[in-house]
Amino acid sequence: MSVPLSHILIVASLMFAMGLGCVIAWRANVIMMLIGIEIMLNAVMLTFVGGSAHWGIADGQLFSLMLMALTSAEVSLALAMVVYLHRRKQTVNTDRFDSMKG
C-alpha cells in the first residue's frame, strides 16, 4: 500500500479534533462526552498502528492493544459512575455536578 504516513496522521488528527470538539460541546450529556473520549482514543490508536506499519515494529500495534484494554476498563468504570450519578440526581448534565466548586 502506498499511502504516506502524513496522510494517516492527518486523518488521525482530524478525528482527534472531532473527539475533542465533542467533549467540549456536549456538556449537557455526559454520555456524549464519553463518546468523544472514545473517538480521541481511537485517533491515537490509528496513529500508533500507522507508525507501527511505517517502521515495521510491532510495538505500536501492541500499544493499541493495551489502549483497548485500558479503554474498556475506563469505559466500564465511567459508565458505572454515570449510572450511579444518574441515580443520585436524575440527570446526566455535567453542569449539575458541581460539588468540586472551589
Binding site: M1, S2, P4, L5, S6, A17, L20, G21, A53
Partner: peptide
Amino acid sequence: ALALVVVVVGALAVLLLSHVRAVPPGFTDI
C-alpha cells in the same frame, strides 16, 4: 469547541507539513 478544533488542527497541520520527508511510502506487514 470549534475555535479549539481549528487551533489544534491548524497547529497539527503546520507541524505535519513541515516534517514531510522523502520517505518512500511503503508499509511492512507485521
